[in-house]
Amino acid sequence: MDGFAFDLLLRWTHFIAGIIWVGHNYSSVIQRPSWRPLTGADLGNDQSARFQALLNREHGFFRWASVVAWSAGTLMLWRRGSLPGALALDGALAPIGVGMYIGTLMMANVWLVLWPHQQKVLGLKPATLEERLRCSRITHLSSRTNTMLSVPLLFFMAAGAHGGMLVR
């Protein structure tokens, strides 16, 4: 496979993994546009082993999609020799550099903030009812932070592909 074909493959992978990942955030906003605190009754119905396995699978898919999307994006920049310039927000690489920093922050949010709390909310890790309800507020804020960050993320991905049109 030549370099151009591999770059195309990476870009395609980046889009698909990104849609799986951020699509989950958008789906959550559409299902629950406004915050309504959970109650014990809300959490009581999802304890069957089958439902737990479904939740685990779904969460795993989008969590690992974040790693695939981030890795494909970083590898694309590295292969082009653009990674140092993007990291330094240098000239025409500044827009995609901003996108990369936002994407990195979002992946860290998924793994370090959302996941540890979501495990308790979903019942994948043992926790008291009070603790699960407390964690559901944190997962809401964490998920919405990524939804909010996806707006500039997609803008800077698009801007970066158009030759850094923001830069004079």
Binding site: S34, W35, M148, L149, G164, L166, V167
Partner: peptide, 30 residues
């Protein structure tokens, strides 16, 4: 008053504001 993230509109509005602020910064500094 609740958190801006507590509504879909608040979340999107914050995203748009951040996009504008970052785009202006890139235009000024990069």
């Amino acid at each position: 008053m609740g958190h801006p993230y507590d509504t879909a509109a608040g979340t999107v509005l914050l995203g748009l504001l951040l996009t504008g602020a970052l785009a202006a910064l890139v235009r000024l500094l990069a």
